[in-house]
Design a protein around this nucleic acid. Sequence first.
DNA 1: AATCATATTTGAACGCGTTCAGATTATTTA
DNA 2: TAAATAATCTGAACGCGTTCAAATATGATT
Lengths: 229, 229
Amino acid sequence: MPQRTELRAAPKSEETRERIFNAALALFHRRGFETATVRDIAAEAGVATGAAYYYFASKDAIIMEFYRRSSAEMQPKIELALENASGLEQRLRELILVKLAHFATNREILRALLRNGADPKHPLSPFSPQTSEIRDTDIAWFRRAVTDSDVRIPRDLAPHLPDILWFFQMGVIFFWVIDESPGQARSKKLLTLGAKSVTSLIRVSALPLMRPVRKTALELIDIVKGAAS
Amino acid sequence: MPQRTELRAAPKSEETRERIFNAALALFHRRGFETATVRDIAAEAGVATGAAYYYFASKDAIIMEFYRRSSAEMQPKIELALENASGLEQRLRELILVKLAHFATNREILRALLRNGADPKHPLSPFSPQTSEIRDTDIAWFRRAVTDSDVRIPRDLAPHLPDILWFFQMGVIFFWVIDESPGQARSKKLLTLGAKSVTSLIRVSALPLMRPVRKTALELIDIVKGAAS
DNA sequence: AATCATATTTGAACGCGTTCAGATTATTTA
DNA sequence: TAAATAATCTGAACGCGTTCAAATATGATT
């Protein structure tokens, strides 16, 4: 198979990798993640089984790549969403909606990614070191969503808020991937009500009356964040 | 499955089942859930590999059995804990502490159980129909913990509170199984602070000022509960 | 052009959970 | 008791993700 059309140093190897990746996504989409075997994927890509493992450490690693690319693709969409939305509640909603919309056609693939969600030991977990880069850019967006918002943020809460919102996002996404309601309508409602509740709670937490409760909650957050690092 | 002809339980069969179950638990404990193979388990129990599948539908089903037995064993301990604790915060704490203590020597087995935790489709999930019986008894304990407590519960919140507290428990347990701090000290602190936060929030939610926030939160809860059923 | 090192590719083999057709043992029926 | 039926048990085989030693292609060096 002589494909000498490349003028740059990009080797034929890169093309094989891409073929395997695309074959994998196509099969995941057609037959589902569990059903699509690595043998199938390799066959569809026109290579031997072992070749898949030359380019991807595991079947899971293919999903990881998918997740990485997706995150990159979403950046401009998120930027746009934050520009067009005003107020914390709306921004929160729109930001997360961008993600749901982006993954809408690949919900099952995302579900496979979140299978081992809770365990930070698992490479695929959104809490794992392997996903820290994506997580950090994610959290940065939430930091941005908070700044210049219409909600007054208590000083002691401020540094933790982006992480809290990210955690909220993960909750919504977890719910969404397993949500079987038509068009994931339930998740949309969850998001709307959740965004409203979160912003309300932040507002309420700023009341002087709430200081002790807030302090306790902040200690709690320290514990949770400490475990992740 | 052994086809038992009515009241006459074949004692020999039951003994084999028990041997397999005990061998499994021993190996899970010694070598970990993933490392212990079904072949190992069968060998340890002195039967052929297939025999394990005559008594248990899957390797996971063995864990399920472990979970069921554990729940049964814990009932009197929970009863005792609730009797000796007063006030919602303490009761909540003590109730969950009973569970942590009970599973302390089998943390890894419980982790295997919660592996696929989020997905209610998975039989092992605490949200699955297969675990509904255990879940219902669990929630009943939380209902009991709430009654005659020192905290005034808003009328509209009351019917949902046991489920919320159960959900809180699940969060603590999830955290606990992946908590690598010495003696899971972090989880203990999480539980203490969490119980405090939850009871504080309930108290606060009863204030007239909080009515709209509470209403929104209740709608949210309806969504989540609706998805489970 | 010939040689060599490295990158790529192959397909058989491994260990796993699981299945299954059949062997063996126990229980019921005649 | 003997035959028939059902329960229990066996171990080889399947399909999976993954590994690996060996084969082949590629690119640099002489």
